[in-house]
Design a protein around this nucleic acid. Structure first.
Lengths: 343, 343
DNA sequence: CTGTTAGCGCTTTCAA
DNA sequence: TTGAAAGCGCTAACAG
């Protein structure tokens, strides 16, 4: 570590023989002193190793932090390796970088936003946080909030029409009334277990992404008069290959075997595809599969996956944009149906 | 937004008819007042809607922030979607979450760490930042620093032996003196262009990951007496499929066509594999390929990729651990050779 | 254009 | 156990 003296605005002002207001102005309000004087002061500061006012003190004083908290729906550790969440973060980061605003990652499983609220100018909240207490807190917060993929009925939100898009992609997969459906759901239940979801009608119909997609699927199935047995909906707690493989194996070994798989993420869909192929089943001849999200890997699979492409990166960018612009409306983003070869 | 009054320690103390020191103690130093009194005060605060001392003021006073900055080697937007960096972040996040320490993502292309230095307790720096000025700043910083995959000769570091691992995996790929090599490098040059790298001997041999790997490859080639033409090293500026595909096409259309491809990332290797297969070449019979990193997708490819598996998540965890423990040594992490079917 | 001063909201001696 | 007061480092209003 360098052993130079640690300067403060005050001490440096004293050293230079000017008042601290002058130094402060030199850094923050160029119009308050002569160009010449400002340059002199800045140069002197730089030589002495004073690199500008302490940001923490500055922020305390101004009530402005140049930092926003991105509240994720789950732990940071989990979200950062989720391909869809990553793309979203990428969009947020890209936009914030332009505004020179720092990004603080915050876990949706944390106990309280209080830990960071005094450090940030506000929140972008990506998906309903796993700890639902946070939602209540966010409603009370006296700072800017932009919600994504859900809405807390205040301030701004960015959403995609999950229900309609799920309906659309399901329609692509269902070909006849004879089709036997299976739904591989992501986080339909608040559990870390892989299990069937039986009483969908008793489920609290909330605004979570999973439930919106489920509703879309169910509508499509009803409209098509196809069959969805009451033991044909799975809950998968996390979008990862290991868990998905277990559910996929279960689903593929049902009797009668489903021939259409509606999957709430591409990772799940790709896993079903791979499991099916290992059983010697052909996609789409024997088994049709659709995913959701439109991750890169889905384009590269054989056959490529039919899925709903979400503009996750744009979503992130939009959310950050709305935050910066202090927007107060709800923005609904487009989606695209990708017709791969899996159905 | 809630319209309740915004309490401060002072105003709440006044309201409760006690001194502000008492309120402060109730929240921070339970031993300084009776249990009964403490509980009373806390309950009263909670009822009135005061959720504890303002963290920004607290931090300014204490000089402790419970936040660390993760300095990435490139822009946050880019790093967050890189599979290897993601795993690293996952490890860091998991460890910090346990300590209830917040994570601030910081771009390696930013101008100066000054923007955040006053908000954080220190830095974890993942890879040499693209803006090399940051390295100099980090050396001066009077706060904790842990570097990863490079070393600034102060405080702690976590590293993997890139050179030896590259050597090892290259040895797996090279079978005879007749082999025609190609190296698809990642960020060997400070440019955003895809191009050949000619004068490797004039290159500043630095401690960047890319150069260490290159040295490992070159050693392996030399030891095997195989052939690496002087126009057979490519620079790819980013690890993504589009850029990799361009370089892969170039490399595959060389005459004589290389039959061994040493790739500095799995994504690059997978892209070469896919391009080769599209040309009707068989892997590994016609073309042998090795990657680096050991991402999930590499295990699932056909054939699975031979590569070096880095324990990226452990690396992240370790870096955070060392930060929290205020370690000062250099830690060298293990790697594993994964023998897939691609060579 | 420059200097003085009152806080931002808090913690922590120190004396009572 | 409590209260008064100094000060963390800074900004902004105001007076000169």
């Amino acid at each position: 570590m360098s052993n130079g003296k640690t300067w403060t605005l005050k001490s440096i002002a004293q050293e230079l023989g000017v008042s601290n207001a002058t130094v402060s102005n030199a850094f923050n309000r160029p119009d308050q002193l002569s160009e010449k004087r400002r340059v002199e002061i800045l140069a002197a500061c730089n030589k002495l190793g004073y690199f500008g006012p302490n940001k923490a003190a500055q922020s305390l004083r101004k009530g402005k932090f140049n930092t926003i908290a991105l509240v994720l729906s789950d732990s940071v550790a989990y979200m950062v390796s989720d391909p869809v969440a990553s793309r979203f973060m990428k969009g947020v980061a890209a936009e914030l970088e332009q505004h020179k605003v720092n990004l603080l990652l915050f876990s949706g499983s944390a106990e309280s936003v209080n830990d960071v609220i005094d450090f940030v100018d506000g929140f972008i909240c990506y998906g309903r946080p796993r700890n639902s207490a946070l939602v209540g807190q966010l409603k009370q917060v006296k700072k800017k909030v932009v919600t994504v993929d859900f809405n807390i009925h205040r301030s701004a939100s960015v959403e995609v029409d999950n229900q309609t898009s799920a309906y659309d992609v399901a329609k692509l997969a269902i070909h006849s009334e004879q089709d036997q459906l299976a739904i591989l759901g992501l986080r339909l239940l608040d559990t870390s277990l892989i299990c069937r979801v039986y009483d969908i009608h008793q489920m609290e119909i909330d605004t979570s992404v999973a439930h919106q997609r489920l509703q879309g699927y169910l509508d499509a199935i009803a409209d098509s008069h196809a069959t969805l047995g009451n033991d044909r909906i799975w809950n998968i707690p996390e979008s990862n290959v290991e868990l998905a493989a277990i559910a996929a194996k279960e689903a593929l070994s049902c009797n009668p075997r489903p021939n259409v798989f509606l999957c709430m993420s591409d990772l799940i869909a790709l896993t079903v595809m791979s499991e099916a192929q290992q059983l010697g089943l052909r996609v789409p001849e024997d088994v049709r599969i659709v995913g959701f999200d439109g991750i890169d890997e889905a384009l590269r699979s054989v056959p490529p996956l039919t899925t709903v492409y979400q503009h996750s990166e744009s979503k992130g960018r939009k959310a950050a944009e709305m935050f910066m612009a202090d927007a107060h409306h709800a923005e609904v983003l487009d989606y695209e149906l990708i017709r791969g070869g899996s159905c």
